[in-house]
Amino acid sequence: MALHVAIDRAKAVGELPGVVETVPTMRSLMVAYDPLAASRAELQPRIDALIARGLPTGLASRRVTLPCCYDDPEFASDLAEVAKRTKKTVEQVIAAHLASPFKVYVLGFMPGLAYIAGLDQTLYLPRRSQPRVRVPRSSVAIAMDMTTIYPFESPGGWHLIGRTPLWMFDKRREQPVFLAPGDSLSFQRIDRKTFDRIAREVDAGTFDWSTLVKA
């Protein structure tokens, strides 16, 4: 998935007039263009030529551990339903989530929302058929083979199984988005008391984010 890098480079030297931006994902690359500056018929062959020329590869990697509280029913509104649908106990669902070897693939949907693949396959479920109108900030959720953390209160169709006290987007930080594509990731279970303590630090801006990362 490095076509976007090739397109960004070509764009920077004026080779792709009309291209506005790209959105890389695990399945496809979206290329946005300004129809007043270029047509699809002009751009498609130029992008095909970039692919034929060969694409750059490689992503840097960090090991990140995120605290997650699964215990409060308010945090984990879908945990019981997930357990029922996957024929597990609630504790088994939590254990499977904690044991999953996650990796961050794509950021999107909202600023700082990461698509994190690697969910234990016994937890695979489709999204809810009717998305929720309001999912609370920092909800930890699963759907299909992925987990995610909602950076803001927003609509959402994933199953909510816990909550982290961290904010996935904090405009006060120099890098407002914490996670990055390529990060290896796991969750660490915390109780409500620890959740509240970390939440206070995050809110005050005193939380030390470097404690979450191992090189």
């Binding site: 695990m26 399945r27 979206m30 489709p126 009717q130």
Partner: peptide
């Protein structure tokens, strides 16, 4: 929908995209 017919691997959403959930 039970077999995942309303799910795709997420991709980019341009302005005016019309998604149809389950």
């Amino acid at each position: 929908v039970e077999k995942g017919g309303a799910d795709i691997i997420s991709d980019g959403i341009g302005p005016g995209a019309i998604q149809v959930p389950g």
